[in-house]
Amino acid sequence: MRVVIARCSVDYEGALQAHLPLATRLLMVKADGSVLVHSDGGSYKPLNWMAPPCHLTELAPDEAEREQGVTSVWLVRHAKRDDTLRVRVHEVLQESSYDLGADPGLVKDGVEAQLQQLLAEHVHTLGEGYRLVRREFPTAIGPVDLLCRDPGGGAVAVEVKRRGEIDGVEQLSRYLELLNRDPHLAPVAGVFAAQVIKPQARTLAADRGIRCVTLDYEALRGMDDAESRLF
């Protein structure tokens, strides 16, 4: 992993256009080729990024850029789309490279992992006609818990939590933003599934068009039949 702290401006061109004015930011280039631009805020979510397959080329600035104080230009092109990320570096404050080695992957809380497995086995809990495509669907920023298809064939990304909080909605939003860049999947809907979902998380999910589903762990395990209860 290459980590660079630099004063830079960033322009993204693709399905949408976005501009980040000159400021000090953290630039990360990962071994899988992804390039991420972070600020000192916003939690784990980058301000902008390019997911693989993509290629980074470092260029000399043109005359106009040199006059503006640009010392180098990072041009990141996506291999399958016309998307480009252009980082104009004015000053490098610090740069390091690290070999992180093979990652063993995320080890989830036992109940949370079991919830994911049970929901995959009983995906109809999300609604009649839903079918599972894959558990732990890989993306450049981590695996989506479940990728499903709804009755109409549309892709649905499902994030499973034991306790549904705002951070979980943010995580799913990040996956959705990335997945919706893939023309083979888009449009991708989102479902936030948890045993307990906090009101703030429900509000944020509704604002972002994400459906919330409350999971009954005991019913999913087959130890409790919710339909036969008196209370």
Results as ranks from 00 to 15, higher is better:
residue 13 E to Y: 08
residue 14 G to Q: 04
residue 16 L to I: 12
residue 16 L to A: 13
residue 17 Q to N: 15
residue 17 Q to C: 14
residue 18 A to P: 06
residue 19 H to N: 11
residue 25 R to Q: 10
residue 29 V to D: 07
residue 32 D to S: 02
residue 32 D to A: 04
residue 32 D to P: 01
residue 33 G to F: 03
residue 35 V to H: 03
residue 36 L to I: 00
residue 36 L to F: 11
residue 37 V to D: 05
residue 37 V to L: 13
residue 38 H to V: 09
residue 40 D to N: 14
residue 40 D to P: 00
residue 41 G to D: 15
residue 41 G to N: 13
residue 42 G to S: 09
residue 50 M to I: 11
residue 50 M to K: 06
residue 51 A to L: 07
residue 55 H to M: 14
residue 57 T to Y: 11
residue 57 T to S: 15
residue 58 E to D: 13
residue 59 L to G: 11
residue 59 L to D: 10
residue 60 A to I: 12
residue 62 D to C: 09
residue 62 D to Y: 04
residue 62 D to W: 03
residue 62 D to T: 10
residue 62 D to N: 13
residue 64 A to S: 13
residue 65 E to W: 10
residue 66 R to G: 05
residue 66 R to H: 09
residue 67 E to W: 08
residue 69 G to W: 05
residue 69 G to K: 07
residue 70 V to C: 05
residue 71 T to N: 05
residue 72 S to F: 09
residue 73 V to P: 04
residue 76 V to Y: 02
residue 78 H to L: 02
residue 80 K to N: 12
residue 80 K to Q: 15
residue 80 K to C: 12
residue 81 R to C: 11
residue 82 D to P: 05
residue 82 D to F: 09
residue 82 D to N: 15
residue 83 D to Y: 03
residue 84 T to P: 01
residue 84 T to F: 06
residue 86 R to N: 04
residue 92 V to L: 11
residue 93 L to I: 14
residue 95 E to W: 06
residue 99 D to L: 15
residue 99 D to M: 12
residue 103 D to W: 13
residue 103 D to Q: 13
residue 104 P to V: 10
residue 104 P to C: 10
residue 107 V to P: 00
residue 108 K to Q: 12
residue 108 K to S: 05
residue 109 D to A: 08
residue 110 G to S: 14
residue 110 G to I: 06
residue 110 G to H: 11
residue 110 G to E: 14
residue 111 V to E: 15
residue 111 V to T: 12
residue 114 Q to R: 15
residue 114 Q to M: 10
residue 115 L to Y: 04
residue 115 L to N: 00
residue 116 Q to E: 15
residue 118 L to N: 06
residue 118 L to A: 07
residue 120 A to W: 04
residue 120 A to C: 08
residue 121 E to H: 05
residue 121 E to G: 08
residue 122 H to S: 09
residue 124 H to Y: 08
residue 128 E to Q: 13
residue 128 E to S: 14
residue 131 R to D: 00
residue 132 L to I: 02
residue 133 V to E: 14
residue 134 R to C: 02
residue 135 R to P: 01
residue 135 R to Y: 04
residue 137 F to H: 11
residue 138 P to D: 03
residue 139 T to A: 07
residue 140 A to M: 06
residue 141 I to R: 09
residue 142 G to V: 09
residue 142 G to W: 04
residue 143 P to H: 11
residue 144 V to I: 09
residue 145 D to G: 03
residue 146 L to T: 06
residue 147 L to T: 07
residue 149 R to E: 04
residue 149 R to G: 00
residue 151 P to F: 01
residue 154 G to N: 07
residue 154 G to R: 11
residue 154 G to Q: 10
residue 155 A to T: 05
residue 157 A to D: 00
residue 158 V to A: 00
residue 158 V to S: 00
residue 159 E to S: 06
residue 159 E to N: 08
